[in-house]
Design a protein around this nucleic acid. Structure first.
Lengths: 206, 206
DNA sequence: ATGGATACCGGCAGGCTTGCCTGTCGGTAT
DNA sequence: ATACCGACAGGCAAGCCTGCCGGTATCCAT
């Protein structure tokens, strides 16, 4: 009875959960948390309401799972993209550019919606808070591997957290207006110059 | 028929609009844009649905007006709080502390909700975008008045925009988690130290 | 003082959302 | 081979939200 059904049951389950979660992320990025509905998710995923209810009984379960998936995906993709940079070209400026690519895509927009919604959603808050901590940790680790000489500088953790927060703010602005996007570009450009200078002179400081 | 009614009609209108708009801002800050409803607004303001419909026919009108009011209020309050600092104490560190008070209150939370919602709401986007530009302009002006010597430094506009964006990111994080709040405090502390040093040495640079 | 406009009230209808419930199909274990 | 179990489909009901409408009170102008 297996014509084209070469997928085992656990494979089908994982595929279904993936479609549902991806549809959730797309819907979040496109429509925002407001304007987000489970109906839109099932429409986008091309499945029935029953399928969604089976895997994610409540809406909170769905968004929490989507946040988890998103955080996990981005952490691994973060390491991969940094590892893909040839060691020759691993400068601070290049690192900032690679980092910025994570604040300019659909995934970040979905995560921003979830983060803002989490402030007033007790069920979502711990998930996003853990994701934030994860982002901070992963960034520190990757930086330490890419720039071992600079990683011993004082306050490096605070500087990295600050860059992440700055990029969050700039990306949120850029999503609104082209003009805001231009200003954000100018800020990143100046930051790049300042940090490159700082990194070059820092090792000579006690 | 007028026991305590000493208010003229335009005054009553303004009072009603103010109650409605303040209730909107409170509701936004407390419940988020998701979970925000006109019913909650009229309940909170203690008026009827008809009154709301009379002054703000549609929900979009209401939130746009609330955003405008919020932006205007904060701009004047920003100037006031800076003017209230005795000239003796107008240091960069103090300025950063005063600035931060604007990212730690109910008004910012409401504005953040509106800003994120504006990304996917064509009617709200231009209002918030204009507010952002306004914030950038006002900050630059106040800074130029408070620190005329530093205002001639190169890239000062970009640095100020960057500080605003950084604070947006830090405030968004802090709203989620105490731990995130602690990290944000550490970042602000390091920034304060770095900028104080930079400001002290900057005038000697060409 | 009177007419007209304006502010305000409270209920109604339509649409959408979420969660649940039953029914059916296919896979899996014994 | 059979009996069970999980995956999935689709419809239903309750609740809420938004926008609109007729009705009433209050204020300003003539």
């Amino acid at each position: 009875m297996t014509r084209i059904m070469r997928l085992s049951q656990p494979e089908r389950v994982e595929a279904m959960r993936g479609r549902l979660l991806d549809a959730t992320i797309d819907s979040l990025a496109l429509s925002g948390y407001h304007g987000f509905s489970t109906n839109d998710v099932v429409r986008r995923a091309g499945v029935s309401r029953g399928a969604l209810a089976h895997h994610f009984p409540t809406k909170a379960d769905l968004v929490a799972a989507a946040a988890d998936r998103l955080i996990g995906q981005r952490a691994t993709e973060f390491r991969e993209r940094f590892a893909a940079v040839p060691p020759r070209r691993r400068t601070v400026a290049k690192a900032l550019d690679v980092l910025w690519t994570f604040f300019d895509d659909r995934g970040f927009h979905a995560l921003l919606e979830l983060a803002v919604a989490a402030r007033t959603d007790a069920e979502l808050r711990p998930v996003v808070a853990a994701g934030l901590r994860h982002a901070s940790d992963v960034t520190r680790q990757v930086f330490a591997e890419s720039f071992p000489a600079l990683a011993q500088q004082p306050f490096i953790a605070e500087v990295l957290d600050g860059i992440l927060a700055l990029y969050v703010g700039l990306a949120a602005e850029s999503a609104l207006d082209d003009d805001a996007g231009h200003r954000a570009s100018a800020v990143r450009s100046v930051l790049k110059g300042a940090l490159s200078l700082g990194a070059a002179s820092a090792p000579s400081l006690p």
